[in-house]
Design a protein around this nucleic acid. Structure first.
Length: 450
RNA sequence: GGCGGCGUAGCCAAGAGGUUAAGGCGGGGGUCUGCAAAACCCCUAUUCAGCGGUUCGAAUCCGCUCGCCGCCUCCA
């Protein structure tokens, strides 16, 4: 398959370096709830992982938690709780969100706070080799010592000179902290350079090296991480290990926008995953994310999500319910081929989805004509599953289910007696309670709608 | 200032030199049905921001113009 590599700015044939695809995606800083932008990124990399596994690759997938950081310290102080209490809470919420979105768990979720000794080893190594130096307020990476610095973001140090002055303790303005000296009242760890805590970038380098080795196959994240985070990760990792490349393929997803307004945590226009799941199904959210190419920006809108919900409903309709007794008519292979070809081309999920919709139409058509559709439905479910779409009939088993069934049977009795007014009244009333009835030739179906 | 991206139907969104410009949502018409819903069928871009150029041939390549956006600072 072909993947667009940020490092080379072109699509490249994906060839893993060993038997197992080593994949690392930057995780969250758990100081608040995750929003739909996070969902977008993790859905995309979940689909990549699912697709690689579908193609027969073994994948070892690591994702970190940055559970020690300025924002965490500030938030915990504000809330009057410990940083661990805070991060545990949001890590739990993170897992709940991911599970609800049908994002498969990755293999290892290291936490920065539990990897300090390994980080110190990396920092020490960089200092020993002259790539880093201790200063008054911590240890810094010396960007001038790395001739490759800027290769991911395609910038030279000259391009990058910031307009504002700052960081007087640094040799170069772009030198970045590997270790930050502790301030009063902050969580800290002992180190050869005094009490302190790790800088942001060092954790990813350390964890990737530790859990996946010196050269990853895939390193992913949002486009906002290209500079400085990933650039700095490369610098640290390659200077420390001497192994190039630190990651063979760098993949970055486009960012989620919010209509006219820019995504901003301060303006409060974020929609959390939890809120979104209260209004839309996980399938609709996934379809929304995957309906545009992963490298393009995507703009959130209620309208778009509602459209996706209807689309998903059509796929579900096709995937379930028996066909006729005739032979199996739908030729599934061409649809599968189209799906795979699309995915092979830098994960072209919009085209893959188009194949799914076309297959759904074929299933419905064949079924209308009385043909058997079991295999086609299996194919639809199987391909949808690569995108993480469950297409399940609404899982929510309602307490009221027996009563709904009862009302339906009463109503059908009324219909048989041509008491349509009363029958319609039941249907309308149930509709107001979000229970939709559909009278088909095989019987009456009902669905719960959010 | 530096680097990069985008502009395709009412809306969302693929396509990146050559068969009818995917697919979804919406809209219009029809079939089925007691009605409704669902489903299916037909229609809904002679044209891809604009203007030039390259080419036998361009939405796709090149140049310019207009409009929008991201990154260079914390961020998936």
């Amino acid at each position: 398959m072909k993947l667009f590599n940020t490092l080379t700015r072109q699509k490249e044939e994906f060839i893993p370096q060993g038997d197992t695809v080593k994949m690392y995606v930057c995780g969250v800083t758990p100081y608040d709830e995750c929003h739909l932008g996070h969902a977008m990124s993790y859905i995309i990399f979940d689909v990549l992982r699912r697709y690689l596994e579908f193609r027969g690759f073994r994948v070892s997938y690591v994702q970190n938690f940055t559970d020690i950081d300025d924002k965490i310290i500030a938030r915990a102080q504000k809330m009057g709780i410990s940083t661990t209490e805070l991060t545990e809470r949001f890590i739990n919420q993170y897992f709940a969100d991911m599970d609800a979105l049908n994002i498969n768990r990755v293999d290892i979720y290291p936490k920065a706070s539990e990897e300090i000794p390994d980080m110190l080893k990396v920092i020490q190594g960089l200092v020993d080799k002259g790539y880093a130096y201790a200063s008054k307020d911590g240890v810094y990476f010396r960007v001038n010592s790395d001739p490759d610095y800027g290769k991911l973001s395609h910038r030279s140090l000259a391009d990058l000179i910031p307009s504002t002055e700052g960081g007087s303790e640094k040799e170069h303005q772009l030198d970045f902290a590997l270790w930050k000296a502790a301030k009063e009242g902050e969580p800290c760890w002992g180190s050869p350079w005094g009490k302190g805590r790790p800088g942001w970038h060092i954790e990813c380098s350390t964890m990737a090296l530790k859990y996946l080795g010196e050269s990853l196959d895939i390193h992913g994240g949002g486009q906002d991480l290209i500079f400085p985070h990933h650039e700095n990760e490369i610098a640290q990792s390659e200077c420390f290990s001497g192994v190039v490349p630190f990651a063979k393929y760098w993949l970055h997803n486009g960012l989620l926008h919010w209509g006219e307004e820019k995504l901003s945590k301060s303006s409060g226009n974020l929609i959390t995953i939890k809120q979104a799941l209260g209004r839309f199904s996980a399938d609709a959210i996934r379809l929304f994310v995957l309906s545009s190419h992963y490298r393009s920006p995507l703009t959130f809108s209620e309208q778009a999500l509602e459209a996706m919900e209807r689309g998903v409903e059509r796929l579900r309709q096709a995937a379930w319910g028996g066909g006729g007794n005739g032979v199996e008519l739908v030729e599934v292979v061409p649809f599968q081929r189209r799906f795979i070809e699309a995915m092979e081309d830098d994960l072209n999920t919009p085209q893959a989805i188009a194949a799914l919709f076309d297959l759904a139409r074929e299933i419905n058509r064949a079924r209308d004509e009385g043909f058997m559709v079991d295999q086609a439905q299996q194919m639809l479910l199987g391909l949808a599953n690569i995108l993480g779409l469950r297409l399940g009939e609404e899982e929510a088993h309602l307490e009221a289910e027996p009563f709904i069934e009862l009302l339906i049977s009463v109503r059908n009795e009324l219909r048989r007696n041509k008491q349509f007014q009363l029958a319609d009244k039941i249907r309308t009333a149930l509709g107001q309670l979000n229970i939709a009835l559909e009278d088909a030739s095989q019987g009456t179906r009902w669905k719960y709608r959010k």
